[in-house]
Amino acid sequence: MSGENTVLKENVFVNEKEKRTGVHNNVNSKKNKKEIKILAKNITRTFTVKNRGEKGVKEFTAIKDINLEIREGEFITIVGPSGCGKSTFLDILSGLSKPTSGELYIDGKLVTGPALDRGIVLQGYALFPWRNVRKNIEYGLELKKVPKKERKEISQEFIDLVGLNGFEDRYIHELSGGMRQRVAIARSLAYNPSVLLMDEPFAAVDAQTRETMQEELLRIWEKTNKTIIFITHSIDEAIFLADRVVVLSANPGMVKEIIDIDLPRPRKLGDVKNSPDFNWLSHKVWELLHNVEGNEKTKVINENRDIAEEISPTVDL
């Protein structure tokens, strides 16, 4: 390790201390002036887990005291080691699950359940195989009772946006992974939510498609001006996309640090990935992610099965 690197490390340390003392201070971002879109206040989620082999139950804290302010039009990525409660947090944001304590506000209103003001893109696409591409995209519009003719116009607009022209009438099993993901994104955008929640959307596609999709997503974001919360386990992806990267620590999941990404936009993957800033940020996030693991990891693995069943149980109707 060169001397320069050590300096950087200290820098990180100072930064970390600063951040921990209070609310995140975002000095140089213009977006500071924009309204707060999403406010998470002390969000904690615990699960009761049955003790295997023994009697009684015990508490498992998936996420603890998450405080987050997200401004309108901001692109936030959340990274963290596995088991840090990323998906739990997204479930709470989507309204599918309620925090044990703490509140979540969107546009100043307390979130009590799922609603069409938030679009969601899940890890496994969650597309409807019995609907073709167009019908999948129109699903939210149907729920909103948009008239048929208007529905068609809107779906066409989003088919164009994600570049699926010519595939409107295809069923899902006829599409490749990347195309499926485009349908999922178009579907979540079509009913015009102001917030887009994405849970590792590109985890299942190949590396090449993934990179194209990242650039596409940025292009769509710049065009539609949505507030995006994007969960990923890829450090590079998190930095490339985000205005701010939220780094979570595991067991319980807590906000470890929020890092501003001041890379110029519009970003091109080829340019950004080779820039020294990107490497520096990437290293920083890497360090943040790695100095918590190790000591806690074995514990997580031992308890994994019971907890997983509690956290994402089979969905009830």
Partner: peptide
């Protein structure tokens, strides 16, 4: 039925009857 599909539908606030 794929639980992810159900989850997606519920996240889009699908009413009971539509579900």
């Amino acid at each position: 039925i794929d639980p992810v599909i159900l989850k997606g539908a519920k996240a889009m606030a699908t009413p009971k009857f539509s579900l």
